[in-house]
């Protein structure tokens, strides 16, 4: 087990370091710049979708969807960041409590 832990950790760290070590000349290329700007947007949008609708290997609409909708509403109302997160979690928890 320790082998897996150390090898996996090394692999994860190497990838993080590799990302930060991209040569500067690459990043001056406008195509690479645009890719690097769009990548986090795409990855985070995909994470939001999967963490909201994913259920192991299927998709589902449940209380998390309501929580995310509350978050979206709070964002549109320009509430502060922490209020957005807290409201979404609180509404989701409340719904679950009511639904037993």
């Amino acid at each position: 087990m320790w082998t897996a832990i150390l090898l996996g950790s090394l692999g994860c760290y190497a990838l993080k370091l590799a990302g930060l070590s991209v040569p500067k000349t690459w990043l001056e290329n406008p195509k690479v710049r645009r890719m690097s700007a769009l990548l986090p947007v795409a990855l985070l949008a995909a994470l939001v979708a999967i963490q909201t609708f994913g259920d192991k290997d299927s998709l589902t609409v449940d209380t998390r969807t309501v929580g995310l909708a509350v978050a979206l509403g709070a964002i549109l109302l320009r509430l502060p960041f922490l209020a957005v997160v807290a409201l979404a979690a609180a509404v989701t928890a409340g719904l679950r409590l009511m639904m037993g």
């Binding site: 947007v41 985070l44 949008a45 994470l47 939001v48 963490q51 909201t52 998390r64 929580g67 995310l68 509350v70 978050a71 979206l72 709070a74 964002i75 960041f81 957005v84 997160v85 409201l87 979404a88 979690a89």
Partner: peptide, 8 residues
């Protein structure tokens, strides 16, 4: 996901 949405 709520936090990521706010950051997006």
């Amino acid at each position: 996901p709520a936090a990521f949405l706010a950051l997006l």
